[in-house]
Design a protein around this nucleic acid. Structure first.
Length: 569
RNA sequence: CGGGACGUGGCGAAGUUUGGUAUCGCGCCUGGUUUGGGACCAGGAUGCCGCAGGUUCGAAUCCUGUCGUCCCGACCA
């Protein structure tokens, strides 16, 4: 490819309205163009990188037995009604009508479509297990797109779906996929990707992991223990308890939200010594967060009622035996609407606690209600930086930010069950297959690589995904000797199977180098009259690890060898 | 959906307070001089100042509405 034929342009001004490096550099380097809120076109260099990433993903998916398929972007609403998600998913699912007024959706994920594809094709246990995947456009009507390719409304995603006849088989495959993901990110040059426990969210299912690139510009907050292997998205990280004086209560044992009790040692109950206290978690409904009612272990309460601001009773998700209410917590905003009513066995009175009395709501997603009797203020917070690890109890938790570049879920039978996918087992008995699903955002991965690998002048693409492996900068290409050497080297490298970007424009050296920096091509060759007078060309890598002169006569083979070496790293 | 900022040639900005010939840099076109880190000289093209109303002799500027973009939240495979 010749630079003067390449569609797109590069510029030096930082675009307005850009906050993060990858967004700025992808715009400045002529990789992407914003079309609308969260919508982007790719120029040729961007598309080339995407294709490289997709190829790596294909190879690794194929290596674990994946079969590539294609599912539609636009789907009839009826398909999504089968799973129930047409009604449960909010406005991030783009709904519209076709010309016959039939309800349609744009696919934001493809469990429905893949079950539709597979259910008639896998009616015997002998068809299992299998995995299919696609690399395709998704549309999610995000309330707020941001960060260029980091968070778009329309984006390319690899989504894979596996089908199994036993939970054990799913778990075995989940591990294989986990390993494949690690290889994919490593091959793309992302070294700082870690996996964390995550929330299965609207996907349903139990076990889920997210692959996170640890970076300050990430949108997700991660809790990482430096003393053990605890790593979690803050969305699902267990809570810790602090009293008003901000001294952390010692956590004896904590379960993740969704389980019924938190057992803590706490000192906020006007009790002289710390003592074990229980908290029962209530859940108003599936979409609402949790409310915790604290219970002093040695006291009793006859009944606890939770009411919302409409006076409707909220039913406890847990057991309230042998409890004393000392306060409650909930996600930010909720407590103001909630009233707790309980019979206090201590004084025989009915106590009422209402969130509306509380003025000081704050902190990271959880807040606490004052009790009338026996309770001091206390805060329940998500894990704090330097806080206590809920797994090993050591104060070794570090909070980091991360970009989610991939995720894997054990779905279970949520979709196969809802959509009537069955097979016959060895005994001729009807069974429902167990599913897993596995996603990678391709554009986000591209931006993440840029985020991790760039300098002030542009991206530094790893050779595996670089749009070209070699860029020739021909200074004074109008000079006959330079022109001849350039064309010869260009042809020789291409004959060697190397993708070469040739810049033989009549522009100043500084201009050419600046453009080359923005293209981020890993290997740069500089041909100039000055060099040719000595019979050499210059060889540099974009990351500055190599900078030397090489003989013109064997330049092609030396460059090919360097590319080979970089590929092997 | 809340809170904030901003829409002026392809890009980045000034001008808006106090209404009066649309301005500067980059980029683009022509010619010339240059040629190792975004060169220089001369000439040139490109604007419904987001859009729609209103006030006014006159609006980029003031008023009303609207659309869009970005940031912080809320939200979020």
């Amino acid at each position: 490819m010749k630079m003067n034929e390449l569609l797109g342009f590069r510029f030096k001004e930082t675009p307005a309205d850009c906050q993060i490096a990858s967004h700025i550099l992808l715009l400045r380097g002529g990789y992407i163009k914003n079309v609308g809120n969260g919508l982007f076109s790719l120029f040729p260099p961007g598309k080339r990188i995407v294709q490289k990433i997709e190829q790596i993903i294909r190879e690794e998916m194929d290596a674990i037995g994946g079969q590539e398929v294609m599912l539609p972007v636009a789907m009839p609403a009826s398909l999504w009604r089968e799973s129930g998600r047409y009604d449960t998913i909010g406005s991030e699912l783009l709904r519209f009508q076709d010309r016959t007024d039939a309800d349609m959706v744009l696919g934001m994920t493809h469990e429905e479509a893949v079950v539709h594809l597979a259910r008639d094709a896998a009616q015997s246990y002998t068809n299992y297990p299998f995995m299919v995947y696609q690399i395709q456009t998704k549309f999610r009507d995000e309330p707020r797109a941001r960060g260029g390719l980091i968070r778009c409304r329309e984006f390319t995603m690899k989504d894979a779906y596996s089908f199994h006849t036993s939970q054990q088989d799913l778990e075995t495959y989940y591990e294989k996929c986990y390993a494949a993901y690690a290889r994919i990110f490593a091959r793309c040059g992302l070294n700082d990707v870690i996996s964390v426990q995550s929330d299965s969210g609207m996907m349903g299912g139990k076990i889920a992991h997210e692959f996170m690139l640890v970076t300050d510009v990430g949108e997700d907050y991660l809790a990482i223990c430096q003393a053990c292997d605890f790593r979690s998205n803050m969305e699902v990280a267990p809570c810790i308890v602090e009293n008003q004086a901000n001294t952390a209560a010692e956590i004896k044992k904590v379960h993740t939200p969704g389980t019924k009790t938190i057992e803590v040692l706490c000192d906020f109950l006007n009790i002289e010594a710390k003592q074990t206290c229980k908290a029962v978690l209530y859940q108003k409904d599936a979409d609402d967060g949790l409310i915790a009612v604290f219970i002093r272990g040695d006291l009793e309460v006859n009944e606890i009622k939770l009411r919302n601001h409409l006076g409707e009773e909220i039913h406890p998700a847990g057991n309230v035996d042998d409890v004393f209410t000392c306060g409650f917590i909930g996600p930010l905003g909720l407590p103001q609407d909630v009233t707790v009513l309980f019979d206090n066995s201590l004084n025989g009175e009915t106590n009422l606690v209402t969130g509306a009395n509380e003025t000081d709501y704050h902190i990271t997603g959880f807040c606490v209600q004052r009790d009338v009797a026996d309770v001091a203020f206390c805060d329940i917070a998500k894990i704090l930086d330097g806080g206590i690890c809920p797994n090993c109890n050591k104060p070794a938790v570090m909070l980091k930010r991360g970009i989610e570049v991939g995720n894997i879920f054990q779905l279970g039978t949520k979709y196969s069950q809802a959509m009537g996918m069955t097979y016959l087992d060895q005994n001729g008995k009807v069974q429902v297959p167990i599913m897993g699903c596995y996603g990678i955002g391709v554009g986000r991965l591209l931006a993440s690589v840029c985020e991790e690998s760039h300098d002030d002048y542009g991206p530094i693409w790893p050779v595996a995904i670089a749009p070209w492996q070699v860029q020739i900068c021909a200074l004074r290409a109008d000079d006959p000797a330079v022109g001849a050497a350039t064309n010869e080297l260009y042809a020789a490298l291409q004959a060697n199977g190397i993708e070469v970007l040739l810049d033989d424009r009549k522009v100043s050296a500084g201009f050419m180098f600046s453009d080359a920096d923005l293209m981020g091509v890993p290997v740069r060759v500089i041909i100039s009259p000055k060099n040719l007078a000595r019979g050499v060309v210059e060889l540099k890598t974009r990351n500055k690890s190599v900078s030397c002169d090489i003989e013109l006569d064997n330049a092609a083979s030396e460059i090919a060898a360097l590319v080979q070496k970089l590929r092997a790293q």
